[in-house]
Structures are given as C-alpha cells and as structure tokens.
Design a protein around this nucleic acid. Structure first.
Lengths: 194, 194
DNA sequence: ACATTTGCCTAAAGGCTATAGGCAACCTAG
DNA sequence: CTAGGTTGCCTATAGCCTTTAGGCAAATGT
C-alpha cells in the first residue's frame, strides 16, 4: 500500500490551510485525514493529539506574523512604523482568518514562552522607539497597541463594523492617526480632565 | 417519574454558570444534562440545538453587560464615564469569564440586530458626548473604544499580561488616562508626524 | 538479502449532537 | 373528580470526532 508521505510539518500546514478555508473550528483530525486520504489513526504518529495540531497552527501563525512584521518595520519609524505594524496584523487576519483565529488561542505558559510572542512585543517596543516614552509608560503603550490591534481586527473580522458607515478602512486609518498623535503627546501621569 | 422543571430560561442560566466555572468550551448539552440529572434528549424540548444554547448565553451576557453599563454611566461624564464603561467590561470579564467569552461569539446578522449590541454602541456614543467630536470622527472613536476595551480584556484574560511588570491594573488605568487625553485632543484629519 | 524501523492500517471504545417515538405526569373541562 | 389532551422527560438509535492498541507492509541500512 502506497504511503501518503505525512510529516508533522505537512499535517500542520494542511491544517492551517483548512483553517483559512473552512474556519478554525473545522480543523479536526478527521477532516485532515480525509484531506490526505488517510485514516485518522495515522495522524497520531505525527501529532500527540488534536490539541497539538491546534497549538502548532497557532505557533505557525505567530511566526508568520512576526516575520512579516520584522520585514515591514525595517527602515520605518514613527507613524510609518506604527501603521506598518498594524497593517501586518490586519492584513494577515484578512488573508488568513483561520490562522489568525488560531493565534488567539490561549497557550500554556511554556509553549507561549517558546513562541514568537516575545518577538511581537519586541517589535511593538521597536515602534515606540520613534516616540518619546520612558518606562513604565513604554510598557503601557505596548499593551495599548496590542489591545487596539487585536481588538480592532477581532471586531472587524467578527463583522462588527460590516454594515455601517463609515467604511472600516477609514476608521482604521483614523485610528492609526489618533494613536500616532497620542504617542507623540503621551499624557504625563495625573493629567486628567478638570 | 418526577419532572426536573426545565425551562429554556433555566437551562440557559445554568449554561452561563457552567461557562463561568468550566470555560465556555465546556458548555455542552451533555454537561448540562448531567447538571440537571436529566437525559440529553430532554434538553431538545427547550433548545433547538447546542448552537442555540451558545447563542442565548451570548445574548444573556450582552444584556447583562449593557445593563451594568447603563447603570454605571448614569450621572457620569468625561473621564469618569470613560473609565466607568471600560471597567464594566473588564470587571464583567473577570467575574464571568465564560459569559464574556460567549459574548465574543460571532452572531448571525439578524440575531445580532435583536441583541443588546446596539445599546453598547449607543453607550459608547454617550461617553463621547463628554468630548468634542463630530461625525465621522465620533464613529471612529466609538470603534477605537470598542477595540481597546475588547482587545485589552481579551489579552488580559488570555494571560498576555500575567507574568510581567508592571501590574495589569496599572496599565489599565494609564490606558484609560491616555484615551481620555486622546479624546480631549483628537487630532484633526491630516495631522501627522512631520 | 535480511533485520529493523517506520508508516499506515483495522478494530474498538468513549463522548457529544441530533432525531424519532413512547409513556407518564400535569392541566383543564365538564 | 375523572376523561382528555398536552407537555416533559424517557429510551433507542445513528452519526461524527477523538484516542488507544495492536498488526502488517513498505522503506531503510548493513
């Protein structure tokens, strides 16, 4: 009987494709076995269980996004860098919704530590080098950027802005503008409304 | 044989409790049937299918959050109102993580239209009455608030800020400060870095 | 060529969803 | 208070997904 030539790598990659085509929830070992025309049990030679498949897709997505982000940030600073980083996440989510959904999985601490997660926060910090922020505000700002990017993309993908004016792309641009303005003019502690 | 006294209402409420205790993914008709000491098939008299259960938990969460938000906004404006609204979402997510997760479900358009979703955007708009924003910037700002709130809470719940300084609560406060400052000083279109 | 490893198989069990059909508990009328 | 109808929960069944155990054959290397 001819062998299918499965490897963990190939299975994970097919899982990522399936996620983008049919949604992350449709990523099952059964569906993947059908795709490779193989019996389900065979996949267990390459993956511990279905959880490992999901986790590996998440790690793949995090790596891919980090690679894109690193490329996008090269040679940019200030608002350009900010927009480039935001666009990386937003574009990736539109192009690979299933992978992006995978990347939102909660990873256990050691897996997270070994993931590209660190690279992502390093890149947000790199963007902030173009602004004048000292610790701990720099960290607060990193968290703000992460929140806005993941929040906006999540709502947009969830259809939150779908059927109302103005266009989501316009809000995105304006929000990047406003974040740029905020970072250039970061409030000192205790500055509040009168 | 004594009857269990099931109703759609009670089943959904139990589902919400189960979600908070065991995670939204653990909300299955099987688990709920065990909780009521009833056979699974019996639940189908009260729910069309398991999707309806999940959707109803999401709608319940959206209502509860909207009710809390309405109460929190009464008599507040400016930064107070902004922080009150943000705290509603953040506190609710900490107190009811399963329900909050349910509220992130993508609802089909008609269900979404009948949900408390509209109330939420109305309340964000109400907060913005304390700031000087005209359309379309008001809508952009509503979307920004939604993004920051849902993004921050999502990352925090996902453990993103768990094991690093500074404390997540401090970042939250500073981020509310910075949003307040941004809204008070919303950039005119085309204002960008030199 | 033979022995070993490896890849994919069959078989089987357990869990969740879903549908169909039945009986008994409850409600309502007369 | 009992006859009838309705409703609530039941059993039975089937399909799909995950996971483990154990077996045969294809690939590998000596």
């Amino acid at each position: 009987m001819a062998r299918a030539g499965l490897t963990t790598e190939r299975v994970v990659r097919a899982g990522a494709e399936l996620a983008d085509e049919a949604g992350f929830d449709a990523v099952t070992l059964s569906a993947l076995a059908r795709r490779f025309d193989v019996k389900v049990a065979s996949l267990y030679s390459h993956l511990k269980n279905s959880q490992e498949l999901r986790t590996r897709i998440a790690l793949l997505a995090l790596e891919e996004m980090a690679d894109r982000a690193a490329a996008a940030l090269a040679g940019r600073s200030g608002r350009d860098a900010l927009a480039a980083l935001g666009d990386v996440y937003r574009d990736y989510a539109h192009q690979h919704p299933g992978r992006y959904a995978a990347a939102q999985l909660r990873l256990d601490p050691e897996t997270a530590a070994a993931s590209a997660g660190r690279r992502h926060s390093e890149m947000a910090r790199a963007v902030l080098r173009g602004y004048d922020l000292a610790e701990p505000d720099r960290t607060h700002a990193v968290r703000l950027l992460g929140s806005v990017f993941s929040g906006y993309v999540g709502l947009e993908l969830g259809g939150g802005f779908a059927h109302s004016a103005p266009d989501s792309a316009q809000s995105w641009t304006r929000i990047l503008d406003s974040l740029d303005a905020l970072l250039r003019n970061w409030p000192a502690t205790e500055e509040r409304s009168p």
